[in-house]
Nucleic acid binder design. Structure first.
Lengths: 152, 152
DNA sequence: GTAAACCTTTGGCCATAGTCAGGAGTCAAG
DNA sequence: CTTGACTCCTGACTATGGCCAAAGGTTTAC
């Protein structure tokens, strides 16, 4: 009986054992056959699959999206355009995230520029700008980003 | 006895009641005095404080960082340069985040460009690139050890 | 006087992507 | 036989920023 134990697979794919079991629970890799003693024995191909997941994750795909991508890969009806579409969509969403962050950055830079860095905090324009941003006239441009920007 | 009930404060600051109590637990808002019946009665100033928090959050500060900023605001030893420094640091970290995302975006764009969008998924260059991640190398400047399986 | 609207607390839950701990069974070597 | 490495499963915990429900006490309006 050939196959990889979970720890060998983990080493090959450079992920942790826990991660592999976690992915199985999430449906990203199929539950492998078991030995008589109930040990998972993985086909070698699962190493590539795990590397795929790892790589896609680095590129900003969520596990959910990766699952879809993987399903596509084994769907005979799927075409390259499906994959391409998803990739383009991801690129779009990353572009948007960059735009949001750029907005925030600009505001922050205005704030920094407005502050001379001397004197007591009680007169700090940064604090002031943050305190009265919606009602009174702020010192800086009113460019604020609403909703769903996830920086973290 | 004047003051704002929690729901009035929530309406004024445009946050939820739960959020206010949550912030109290996190130390962003001081525990207000209570009525005889144990109701929170907020000073009006807390509305500004909540708007400050809201605004800072929109600018990418975490609750933890905001807490520090607020503490600074009431620390007589603190100076504008403290606030400025923190703002600059936040700006730097956002700049870095933008750089990271830009890297990812470029890789994604290469991938999209390499794919004509026609034919079966089995020949998709995007899938292939993700599967054999040695081709394109983004983001991680410290090379992880690929060749050496550190177990004989 | 009663019902609606408000307030209190405690605690659980959402998503993301895992990590870690514990107790028990299994396997190879000495 | 024993030791150590490996595996199993379940469940709890991490961090972030809250949302929601339950069950009860209070205030207000009619």
């Amino acid at each position: 009986m050939t196959g990889l134990t979970i720890s060998r697979l983990a080493r090959m794919a450079e992920v942790s054992i826990d991660t592999i079991r976690f992915y199985e629970g999430r449906g990203l890799i199929a539950p492998p056959p078991r030995t008589d003693s109930n040990y998972r024995m993985y086909p070698e191909g699962d190493a590539a699959r795990l590397r795929f997941i790892k790589r896609a994750k680095e590129l900003g795909f969520s596990l959910c999206e990766i699952k879809d991508l993987l399903a596509l890969q084994h769907d005979s009806r799927a075409s390259k355009s499906d994959v391409k579409l998803r990739t383009e969509e991801k690129a779009r969403s990353i572009r948007q995230k960059i735009r949001d962050l750029t907005q925030i950055l600009e505001t922050l830079e205005h704030l920094v520029a407005a502050c001379d860095g001397h004197g007591p905090v009680s007169e700090c324009p940064i604090i002031e700008a943050l305190s009265f941003s919606d009602e009174t006239e702020p010192l800086h441009h009113h460019n604020h980003v609403k909703g769903g920007t996830n920086h973290g």
